[in-house]
């Protein structure tokens, strides 16, 4: 088996609020190989964004990483000094966010911000950085790159801004790109452009991608491996084909069935009853108990482990504890 680029072991990130401790990420483990694209799927409050921020070392008070390891090329990032972490961010690990406008400083030109990050991490001269920046802007498909280089972020459209963010993120050839809902704020034709761009660029450079999303369509088109998160835990972890064909967790199945699909037509959508529980409210048993149609007495008392069904399929559900059960 190939050496993992990123390995997360039993990561726990808790938020210490006035009303007690909220376990936003509660024992998450997974690994990511070089060149692999992984998706973390979940609804709001599932802990998917907190997971990515924990990896980047961007968890601020009142949140705190309480336990576990984040191994990046064998190095534990949770114990790394702030200085080394800053070096790593942007250089080896880059991140793009949902709303590019808020991640770009409105007071500086686009070019200024890209060259800044190039100069910071690559020790290039001003001129070199400018040349490299324009090259990157062209690479992400921005027409009239020189003009965009000297524009301010608010003058660009949403799609252009996301391209700029990608150019910035990829300017230092990161080994890992974390993309938190990169296309959610974009229109569908622009989304298609950006996804295509991400695919091409990462294929070229063999970059690994961690994609955080709620859109199963994007997952189906983009990734190799999927992690489904619910209430801070991984509930299912497998390759994308198995996940869509044979989902084992009732939540995954519910999620797949409740999504209206563009290539199918149904009279009525299935839906998952109830709402996502606030983190920390379910203290006993399976976290999905309140919404599960197949919950048994055991599910309310004992919490299931993430169990390996086959070499590449793990699921956290009592239904699969003994034998294969069709759900």
């Amino acid at each position: 088996m190939a050496e993992a680029l990123l390995e997360i072991k039993d990561l726990k990130t808790y938020f210490h609020t006035e009303n007690g401790v909220v376990p936003s990420v509660d024992g998450v483990s997974f690994s990511l190989k070089k060149g692999e694209t992984i998706a973390i799927v979940g609804e709001s409050g599932s802990g998917k964004s907190v997971t990515s921020l924990s990896i980047m070392g961007l968890i601020g008070s009142p949140g705190k990483i309480e336990g576990g390891e984040v191994l990046f090329e064998g190095q534990d990032l949770t114990t790394m000094s702030k200085r080394n972490m800053r070096k790593l961010r942007g250089n080896d690990i880059a991140m793009i966010f949902q709303e590019p406008l808020t991640s770009l400083n409105p007071l500086f030109t686009v070019g200024n911000q890209i060259s800044e990050s190039i100069r910071l991490h690559q020790k290039a001269s001003k001129e070199e950085a400018k040349i490299k920046s324009i090259e990157m802007l062209k690479k992400v498909g921005i027409p009239r790159a020189e003009k965009v280089y000297s524009s301010y972020p608010h003058l660009l459209s949403g799609g252009m801004r996301q391209r700029v963010m990608i150019a910035m993120a990829l300017s230092c050839n990161p080994k890992l790109l974390i993309a938190d809902e990169p296309t959610t704020a974009l229109d569908v034709t622009i989304q298609a452009q950006i996804l295509q761009l991400m695919k091409n660029l990462t294929n070229e450079n063999d970059t690994s991608i961690m994609l955080i999303t709620h859109d199963l369509g994007v997952v189906a088109e983009m990734v190799d491996t999927v992690i489904v998160m619910y209430a801070g835990q991984v509930v299912e972890y497998t390759d994308v084909f198995t996940l869509f064909k044979e989902p084992k967790h009732p939540y995954t199945k519910g999620l797949l069935d409740s999504t209206p699909k563009i290539h199918e037509l149904k009279d009525e959508l299935q839906s998952i009853e109830g709402t996502v529980p606030a983190p920390g409210t379910i203290t006993q048993g399976c976290k999905f108990q309140t919404r599960c149609t197949r919950a048994t007495a055991k599910c309310f008392v004992e919490e299931p482990e993430l169990k390996e069904l086959s070499s590449n399929h793990k699921v956290r559900c009592w239904l699969h504890e003994q034998e294969e059960v069709a759900i």
């Binding site: 569908v188 034709t189 989304q191 298609a192 452009q193 996804l195 295509q196 859109d215 199963l216 369509g217 994007v218 997952v219 189906a220 088109e221 983009m222 994308v240 084909f241 996940l243 869509f244 064909k245 797949l256 999504t259 699909k261 563009i262 290539h263």
Partner: peptide, 19 residues
Amino acid sequence: SAVPIADPELRDKKHRILI
């Protein structure tokens, strides 16, 4: 054509018209 299809089996069979 731009809408992602929630079925990984179709991802390579599909031709996309990019606007």
